[in-house]
Amino acid sequence: MNTGSVTTLPRLESAGLDGWMVRLFDSIEETNLPWITALLQRCESAFGTAVVDLVPSYTTLLVVFDPVQLSPLEAQQKITSLLTDLTPEGSSGTSQIHELPTFYHASVGPDLERVAEHTGLSVAEVIACHSQKTYRVFALGFAPGFAFMGLTAPQLECPRLDTPRKKVPVGSVAIAARQTAAYPTATPGGWNLLGRTSARLFDRKREGFSLLNVGDQVRFVPASREAFERSGGDITPMEACQ
């Protein structure tokens, strides 16, 4: 992608009266995340009560600060100093591997066949391909706790549906382009549904609310219908969820 700029990275861009966009990278790589989460943690401790929100995503960190405590210039200087000797979060750090039990089946994954057709793989190969890789959470957005993860294997690349579904059931596991996700709540959605996880992805009563956080590592673990149900999964077929 042409960003039309020759300025070096990282750089700070104005994001309004109370925000700075820290642009660290210019392409989507799983290796970006340890750098972004490291900066996020530094900002958290350095800004203290002056931090309002820190929104990490793929290549950037949006820093929203309290404009009463800090001027944009003061915030800029603070962030710049935090960037000078930044080191990525170590693999032994807080980032854990989540295993999401997933029931891959046409009854809850109505696009399995379509994906197989599009990719030239068999359904079994699609499932194997999707569940063998460990993914990184790039960003949370679209809905509370909705984690954009990747990258999926190149042979699994598949476009979104032409017409999004009005309602995708809770827990649906999906792919689009080279990303994967699981729906934390029933929302509209245009991704290809492969199955369903019993993991509770978003819970407003839980400490931290979201199971998955940016930078986390995730694996989808194939589960039998029985194991899926035992762990609290809902096997109501897709058609009955509309």
């Binding site: 992608m1 925000g19 929100d53 990490p56 995503s57 290549t59 949006l62 954009f148």
Partner: peptide, 15 residues
Amino acid sequence: CRIRSLISEGINLGG
């Protein structure tokens, strides 16, 4: 705009 789309990033109020 020369740029049609960006890699998704946080959006602040009033963007």
